[in-house]
């Protein structure tokens, strides 16, 4: 079986700064794979490099067995799509939802735009009432649903999710995560999801990779997290941090 996504030795530099330093990972078709790390760990850079939004210095990326070069053709974008972190920055401020969704269809020459737009809005739970709104007339959760609809409208097989819920309230996050899970089930999609939140990744993904300073710390299964079987001390620290504040940390600090 060819991997949905196969990355080896990926290096990305911005003006001499190595954002990614030799990262390799393999994602199987239909799998949901998580990337966890703190700011500056390079987790989002992996997604941007795959999408062609970051300058790749060396290393290789293959999507469904096909190596991706410097230039990506239109067919690539029909296989891979991305949902961005900030729902307030990822929708064009001067376009209606209708225009946003029609654009990818126009670029790829679909003829049944009308019915596809309505279907996409239905699928993300918005309905046609939202079709002619501008993004400033939408809440954060609704915007993210529009962004998901836009990513899905070309019927990709791989979805790159860059912290899709970190800008949302907890209750809205639950709705969006449920939606993403349902879509993956229905469409048999492959997810590569980035988050700083271990709990979100543990909830959404089967396997994950912990990153730090542009490098992979370790790869493990979500089950290992639940049973606290993390090998690397950094992962252990992340696990402890995700449990929330514990007062005995304070007593330890005041004793010191």
């Amino acid at each position: 079986m060819t991997a949905a996504l196969d990355i080896t030795g990926l290096v990305v530099s911005y003006d001499g700064f190595r954002a990614l330093d030799g990262v390799s990972l393999t994602v199987q078709p239909g799998e949901s794979f998580g990337l966890v790390g703190e700011s500056g760990s390079g987790k989002s850079t992996v997604l941007r490099a795959i999408a062609g939004l970051a300058p790749v210095e060396s290393g290789s990326i293959a999507v469904e067995g096909i190596p991706i070069g410097k230039r990506r053709d239109k067919a690539f974008y029909r296989r891979v799509q991305m949902v961005f972190q900030d729902p307030y920055g990822s929708l064009h401020p001067r376009q209606t939802v209708d225009r946003l969704l029609a654009e990818p269809l126009a670029i790829h020459g679909f003829s049944d735009a009308e019915s596809r737009i309505l279907r996409a809005l239905d699928e993300v739970g918005l309905g046609s009432g939202f079709r002619f709104r501008y993004s400033h007339q939408l809440s954060g959760g609704q915007r993210q649903r529009v962004a998901i609809a836009r990513a899905l409208i070309l019927e990709p097989s791989i979805l790159l999710l860059d912290e899709p819920t970190s800008a949302l309230d907890a209750s809205v996050q639950a709705e969006v995560l449920n939606l993403l899970e349902k879509i993956r089930r229905d469409r048999k999609l492959t997810y590569l999801m980035v988050s700083h939140d271990l709990a979100v990744i543990a909830h959404m993904c089967g396997r994950l990779m912990v990153m730090r300073g542009g490098q992979a710390v370790e790869s493990l299964a979500a089950k290992d997290l639940a049973s606290r079987r993390a090998g690397d001390p950094y992962t252990q620290r992340l696990l402890v941090a995700s449990e929330g504040f514990v007062r005995n940390a304070e007593t330890a600090a005041s004793e010191a």
Partner: peptide, 20 residues
């Protein structure tokens, strides 16, 4: 209650998450 429940957690395997 809803706010407490809707957060994903490493230990609980709840699919789908309860929503508010």
């Amino acid at each position: 209650q809803g706010l407490l429940n809707c957060m994903p957690s490493i230990d609980a395997d709840r699919h789908p998450l309860p929503t508010l």
